[in-house]
Amino acid sequence: MKKELGIFTLLLVLCGVTAVMNPRFLSVTNLTNMANIIGLYGVFSLGLGMVIITGGIDLSVGSMFALAGVLLSMALTEWHWPWPLAAAFVIAIPMLLGWAHGSLVTRMKIQPFIVTLCGLLLYRGLARYIAGDGTKGLGNAEGFETFASLAKGKFFGLPAPFVILIVLSVIMWFVLHRSVYGRYLLAVGRNEDAARFSGINTRFVIGTSYVLMGLLTGVAGILFAFYTNSISPSNHGNFFELYGIAAAVLGGCSLRGGEGSVIGILIGTALLQVLQNLVNLLGIPSSLNFAVMGAVVLFGVLADQFFQNRAAKKLVRH
């Protein structure tokens, strides 16, 4: 809980500073926009967080977005599938790929970094090939207006992705912090041997975390496709895995596994998006965008390390 408190303070401070220096930060348009984007990024960051908690990693998210986007566009505008079928299809594909990642990690004992790095290259290439390396689009959503309004409309005056993120977060909170499966995720991430000695099916737990990741990637992929409305397979979703990893780490997930919380991941995601917004609103050259983000993540992790060391020393003295 303390961990989240630290980063939450940082988030509030950044919001405060930006609001004071440019009151437009608090305008309804800006806040709505930001909520929308936080929704988009939050959904897959949650999934990435679960994988990171088991001690794994998934680098293939961005490429899966490209693949999902291309397939969604083609299913809806070229093959004219009914939208529920198209949605199910576009969510099922990343889940299937996630299952494959999980199996390679648990059965073949290949490192998650390698497995998903290959995924990153493979799915990007596939997406470009399937799309004939051309840009695909969703047009005016003719024939699937309901779907479009679900993905980019508003609920209770809030952008749909944000509402979806809230709903998924509540579910994921129960899964991670209250269910047996969530406890197993944390146990396996901390000490796989001890978990196995306690009779936990560690392969199943780790493997399904990648499937869960696939599910959330599929949902986020649909939201993001509707957000951009046109999908250029060579750069759609580029670097998204890194945003997700950064959010999870800022939010207190340890890349060694066994640590992390849903609240932390949400705050981490929000912090990254507020930073982007801050760069825009404060007139910082947008070319510095990445540099600012990198610096803040580094600072956050350093601060966390500092406080942990201090806590450890305190413990020894007692």
């Binding site: 269910s179 047996v180 146990a187 000490n191 978990a195």
Partner: peptide
């Protein structure tokens, strides 16, 4: 092998029999 040392006494004691402590899928 015996313990997940980063976890609490409670979490370690119940780890092999967690299903006993659930109702409606919640621990």
């Amino acid at each position: 092998e015996g313990l997940v040392t980063g976890m609490t006494v409670r979490e370690n004691v119940t780890l092999p029999s967690l299903a006993r402590f659930t109702s409606l899928f919640m621990i």
